[in-house]
Design a protein around this nucleic acid. Structure first.
Lengths: 342, 342
DNA sequence: CTGAAAGCGCTAACAT
DNA sequence: ATGTTAGCGCTTTCAG
């Protein structure tokens, strides 16, 4: 009954069936130079007849694996899903298969995942909002084509795709000011590392907030709660801000999930949004768009970012010594029902 | 400046450095039988000193790749993220690395992803809520250890982990009836395929709903809107139900996202929840727990499901001829603020 | 344009 | 307990 595991069809089988050499088959497989049209059709037919599929493991030992690894900090963050959509759409009809590691938080987990991807001979890596030391990232990228998404700062080895977080923060502040707000507080993701303070989006958003406040002559109103980019962080941060002697009239949360936590804390305090207090988020995730929440948020167009990342990565795979490129996209503000005139 | 790609450290380098054979190194790597403690320490030291990491591609050519592939229909579904958490937690300190394909919807995309994983010599597959033909799944599982999650029905080749969807649906109906509801409608995911009608969770939930209604003597009140398990599907389905001559007093949505869509439609119709109408979901995703939404929902304990799947998979990898097992977990109801007495 | 042959890095028989 | 050797399935020189 149980057949003894029907051995997989190999390139040798195809070659024999088509009466050609394995080299010929290999060339057809890779659309490589040096195979006549006649040869191509003959081999292709054999491939189809036998249902042959090349083994990526074997290919990887000499050439490419046609696999692109994506690392992201958190699967539950819908913004990252958008980036992923952009990547897969862009790679849609190429031979590359995208595989991703389940969310990894922290430098240690990142190191493990990156190693795992290198061990598996992936052709290219997309690292989304990595927190690893820049030195490490640069080393990794020296070994395998890499694109870093959502982390500012140029590198000699990797390409990067970012959204202008400074501008995004300014969009929010400008909007709130135009609604008459002055006491605009911010909930940031706490950061101490010096390089990360210059490169991580959360740091730049906090920075952009400060700059924008100053630009509006509101430097005395600057008020920041330093927690983390999580729902709990938003809750905690908002509680903190609401306990101030003079309550802010608007809260700019560094991310949509943070805004959600803030909304919870505000509701718990018996205050209404936007009646008593306006709230804005960042990322314009599906959550923000969801009717009952309807959160004003900064849209980063994750799909666009992902598409750019994939494009750059393929370019680099095909030309490894190409100069590193930085793509910086411009965010836009989506005004919804959580912000209103004071 | 640019060093010419420092060749990766191989098992040969380690063997030479430790003055032993490559076989010895290989054995230490795999904790295989036949290496003395002295040998182990010597080799391990060489490995550390050289920073050696085995190439998964090369390993895959002969033995295992220590890679487990996970396929899921949709990354944005938070319930799937829970399953994934369970898998990775269970696999935490093993040598296996989990890699997943970005969400794939439909039979065609599934086929592509499964092929891609097989091509990459993955040691095992976890297929979450696959829609592919059962025949295909059985064939796949004959070739590579496979666990199917969230699809009922035993198979001769794969293990499966499910949650008792019939019981889950009954939980909701029982709850609503106990609150005094009689006109309880259901929004289901439309299904026509005969096998899927018997195996897919959505079909079983619809079934469980009907049975429970009948058990309560409410067969005349059975009312089903057949759309899809998406937010749009929920919106559409609720609109349909609200347009009935006699409006339902409660809606049981087959999934939390569906409930969200329903909530939107209900709000749009100027009705209040749970004042005018009660709503219950399924999955108890983070969304359901989110304060402002606070959706009554059926909890499937995705983490538990994932942990079981991973456990079964590793067992099967180590003993491929083991009898297929079916694990069926029992759901529980989490009552929140979207359901109330009529 | 085509094919023979030499590996890629590792594991699994098979000696010793 | 250790080492030797032959591949795994593919790509890549290098001849023809």
């Amino acid at each position: 009954m149980d057949k003894p595991a029907p051995r997989r069809v190999t390139i040798v089988d195809v070659a024999r069936h088509a009466q050609v050499s394995t080299t010929a088959v290999s060339k057809v497989l890779r659309n490589a130079y040096g195979a006549s049209p006649a040869m191509r059709t003959k081999v292709q037919q054999a491939i189809d007849e036998l249902g042959y599929r090349p083994s990526a493991a074997a290919r990887g030992l000499r050439g490419q694996t046609y696999t692109i690894g994506v690392m992201l900090p958190e699967l539950r963050n819908l913004f990252f899903a958008d980036i992923l959509d952009g990547i897969t759409t862009q790679l849609g009809d190429s031979d590359y298969q995208v595989l991703l590691a389940p969310g990894c938080n922290g430098e240690k987990a990142e190191a493990k995942v990156i190693d795992a991807m290198i061990d598996r001979s992936m052709d290219g890596l997309v690292l989304i909002a990595p927190v690893s030391a820049k030195k490490r990232l640069t080393e990794v990228a020296a070994g395998v084509p890499t694109v870093v998404v959502g982390r500012h700062g140029a590198s000699p080895t990797y390409d990067s795709v970012t959204d202008d977080d400074i501008a995004g923060a300014a969009l929010v502040v400008d909007h709130l000011v135009s609604l008459g707000h002055r006491r605009i507080a911010h909930i940031e993701h706490h950061e101490t590392d010096r390089i990360r303070l210059a490169e991580m989006p959360n740091a730049l958003r906090a920075n952009g907030y400060r700059h924008a406040m100053i630009a509006h002559g509101l430097e005395d109103e600057i008020d920041v709660a330093s927690t983390s980019y999580t729902q709990a962080g938003g809750y905690q941060g908002a509680k903190e801000l609401l306990a101030r002697p003079v309550r802010p009239t608007a809260i700019f949360a560094g991310a949509d999930v943070v805004a959600l936590g803030a909304l919870e804390a505000i509701a718990e305090a018996g205050l209404s949004v936007p009646g008593d207090i306006s709230v804005a988020g960042y990322d314009n995730s599906a959550l923000a768009a969801f009717g009952p929440i309807s959160l004003t948020s900064v849209d980063q167009d994750g799909r666009q970012m992902g598409a750019n990342a994939a494009r750059l990565l393929v370019e680099r795979i095909n030309q490894r010594d190409r100069r590193p490129t930085q793509v910086k996209l411009t965010p836009s503000l989506v005004v919804r029902r959580t912000t209103a005139t004071i």
